[in-house]
Structures are given as C-alpha cells and as structure tokens.
Design a protein around this nucleic acid. Structure first.
Lengths: 123, 123
DNA sequence: GTTACTACTTACCTTATGTATAGTAGTAAC
DNA sequence: GTTACTACTATACATAAGGTAAGTAGTAAC
C-alpha cells in the first residue's frame, strides 16, 4: 500500500532529477566541464582532450554552458584571436554531482572487470 | 601550460563519467529507480507514477535494469498474474548519485525561480 | 602556393530515443 | 456485452541529438 505522502515526495524527486538531467544530462556537457576544470580553456585544446567530440557539438555545448551560467567566454583580441572559457562559481555547485558520478563510474567499471575475470576463470 | 598528469587524470575522470552515464544516463533510468524505491513495484503502478512514460519504454528500461543487476523481476502466478520489480542491493550503490542529482536539481530550480522573480520585479 | 594554426559555422545525414496507438490473453465486475 | 484490470508486445511514426565533412577568415610558417 502506497501512501500519498511518499508518492508526492517521489514525484518531486523525479521532477528535481528531470531538471538536473535536462541541464547536465547531455552526452558531452559534464565531460566539457571536467576538461575545463582540468585547465583546458581553449576550443581546440578542449576538442583534443575530449575524445570523439566534433567542433559542432563542442560549440553547442559551450553555448549552453554559457547560457546556464557555468562558463564565461573570454575573447582576447590578438593575432590570432584567442578565446578562453572559464568556469564560473556556479559550476562549483556541481562538484558533488561530479564526484558521485565519477566514483560510481569507477566502481561500476571495477565490478564489470571482476565479473569478466570470474567468467574467464570459471567458464 | 597543462602537465601530463592532470590531463591523464582528467581523461580517466571523463572515462568514469562515460561509464556511469552509459548505464544510468538514459532519460528514464533513474526515474524508474526512484519510483521503485518509493514502493511502486508493479508495472502499471510505475507507469502511473512516472508521468509521460510509455509502456514500451518502461518495459525496455526495466529489462536494462534487470540486466545491470539493479532490479529483480518477480512473477507471482495467480489471477491475474502479478509481476513485481524489486531493487537489488547493487541499486543502493547509486544512493550518492541520486542524492547529489536530486538536491542539485532542486537548488537549480530554486535559482531559476529567483532569477525569474528578479526579472519580473525589475523589467 | 600550400599547409597549418586560431575558432568556429553550415548543411546534410544517421541513429537512438521516444511517442502513439492498437493488440494480446485471461478474468471479473457491472 | 462492455468495460476494466493484470502486464506487457508490436507496429509505425516523429523528433532530437549527435556525427560527418566541408567551408570561412585571417595570419604565418615552410
């Protein structure tokens, strides 16, 4: 028997999750944030660091990140023009999410490797 | 100047993130887990709780969750046949991820509402 | 004069994901 | 006899995200 209170709480959790995933659930969004955090601030540098991302997609992700207040686009007029992307303080609010996802991802990968080893040892 | 160590660490973080998002980054995956956690164990109950999910998608998500060891499918033969989905212990390892995402989603929503209020107050 | 660097943009194509609608089968209430 | 419940499955269609490849513009090295 499900009571109404738990269901309401459940629905609001699901809504919050939706909001989060809408903003940071894209295939590349968090990868770009991690790379910028690591010190890769320029476009081509980011593209080289993030395996498999195309210029088009990177450009789109950076625009979204700017709109959502995670990143600032800084243009240094010179020869050649250099554009730098800086993380804004709001990006730090994602730290818990990033830590949780990265460490869960590592643990999950280790689990898969163990399962694989066991199936090789005892086929 | 980026040193090699930080870049390697960055790439491995990105890989871990990829692994995590591959398993739980689907649009509905975590929503279904939250709903089961909340006590909604039957198919139609889940479909009613998770707004907008179709039977086809729910069916597919439940199969994935079963394959990944998050959920157990329990069939009670009776009239009518009742199928119950139970969370397995491995699903608990997602607790940190869920907490982080839900609380970030709530905070983000509150931030958006504040920004909206300010733009109405001072147009 | 051809290649490479800076940082992208544009157009097109593919694929994954999701949506909508209907159908299956057995039972039972109205 | 029609509706509703159980839990799905099947089919067809729509959309949106992402992938591919080429182009732009200015400079500079070879």
């Amino acid at each position: 028997m499900i009571n109404k209170i738990s269901t309401e709480k459940c629905k609001s959790s699901i809504k919050a999750l939706e909001d989060a995933m809408y903003v940071i659930g894209g295939k590349w969004t968090l990868r770009v944030i991690i790379a910028i955090k690591d010190g890769h601030t320029r476009f081509n540098d980011l593209q080289r660091t993030i395996d498999g991302i195309s210029a088009k997609v990177l450009s789109g992700v950076l625009k979204d990140l700017e709109q959502n207040g995670f990143v600032k686009r800084k243009v240094d007029i010179g020869v050649p023009v250099v554009v730098e992307y800086e993380l804004l303080p709001y990006a730090e609010s994602l730290q818990d999410v990033l830590n949780a996802l990265v460490s869960w991802g590592e643990a999950h990968r280790n689990k898969l490797i163990k399962v694989q080893e066991m199936s090789i040892a005892q086929p």
